[in-house]
């Protein structure tokens, strides 16, 4: 059996078929934008396609070595050196996540801009929580059965590299929440994803990251938050930046499992 047959036999679902049809383009990094999202989505849940892509990558990664070696202008090193120093000094100091920050920030002068940024985002986050809380106290057809308006939880998102951090504030029985994150790379695209207990995944929204690396936005999930086993923020290279399991809140009791019927996608 050759590799071609292997791929054909692996195509067990529509998504696998789609993936096998586009896997060469993906390996070569030339997928069209509209196919990229579907491809990445499928890849995040399919170890077979991931393995196939990894095999192709071994050949693709060698392609750059085929080019003739050419020396750049000798002044390029100096230009890069100067630019590096310039950008390094202009870069805001990375802000550690709140749970680890106290010992590091205490005892040294924190740079004013990041602290301002962090402070403003955090204040905004609190205001947003308060507004959502007040909103849910108002009589409403939707909220009257399952929302008390007092069951707010704050979920701490775990960082994959211990540098970024984030929180989600939400009523677990609601579809709406507020996400706050910091120390993200603003040059990268970030997406908010969720996965339920049946391993169905949804891209919820793009996470808009400010130049300071902070982000705060309200997020509407397809289903009630308590129905997800994980909510995560993914970078455009397919790796997870932040994640949280919504059965672990940091400011209250563990939310009870929701008995409400998921609204579906």
């Amino acid at each position: 059996m050759n590799d071609h047959d292997v791929i054909d036999n692996l195509a067990e679902s529509d998504d696998c078929l789609f993936c096998s049809d586009h896997i060469e383009e993906a390996a070569l990094g030339i997928l069209e934008a509209e196919d990229q999202e579907r491809f990445e989505h499928h890849l995040s849940g399919c170890s077979i396609c991931r393995a196939e892509l990894a095999r192709l990558d071994t050949a693709v990664q060698l392609l750059p070595f085929a080019v003739n070696q050419i020396e750049p202008d000798a002044a390029l090193k100096l230009r890069l050196h100067e630019r590096f120093l310039q950008e390094r000094d202009a870069e805001p100091t990375r802000i550690p996540s709140p749970r680890k920050s106290e010992s590091r920030i205490r005892g040294r002068k924190a740079p004013s801009r990041p602290m301002w940024t962090f402070g403003s985002v955090f204040a905004g986050f609190c205001v947003a929580l308060a507004v959502i809380g007040l909103w849910n106290l108002l009589p409403s057809n939707e909220s009257s059965t399952s929302m008390s308006g007092r069951n707010f939880q704050v979920y701490a998102m775990q960082s994959s590299d211990d540098q970024s951090g984030g929180h989600i504030g939400a009523d677990p029985d609601s579809k709406d929440g507020t996400m706050m994150a910091w120390n993200l790379d603003p040059s990268e695209k970030h997406e908010i994803w969720c996965v339920d207990h049946e391993d169905n995944r949804w891209k919820v929204d793009d996470l808009v990251v400010a130049d300071s690396g902070s982000a705060m936005q309200t997020v509407t999930f397809p289903k009630e938050i308590s129905t997800y086993k994980q909510i995560y923020v993914m970078r455009n290279d397919g790796t997870q930046e932040l994640s949280v399991a919504p059965n672990q809140a940091i400011n209250g009791d563990e939310p009870a499992p929701s008995e409400s019927t998921p609204a579906g996608d």
């Binding site: 070595f65 070696q69 050419i70 020396e71 750049p72 390029l76 090193k77 050196h81 590096f84 120093l85």
Partner: peptide, 20 residues
């Protein structure tokens, strides 16, 4: 953010990166 590290990385790999 050590500039020496950047210089070292440049010295080692600038040719293949630039050529590509």
């Amino acid at each position: 953010g050590h500039p020496e590290a950047m210089d070292l990385l440049y010295d080692r790999y600038h040719r293949p990166v630039f050529s590509f």
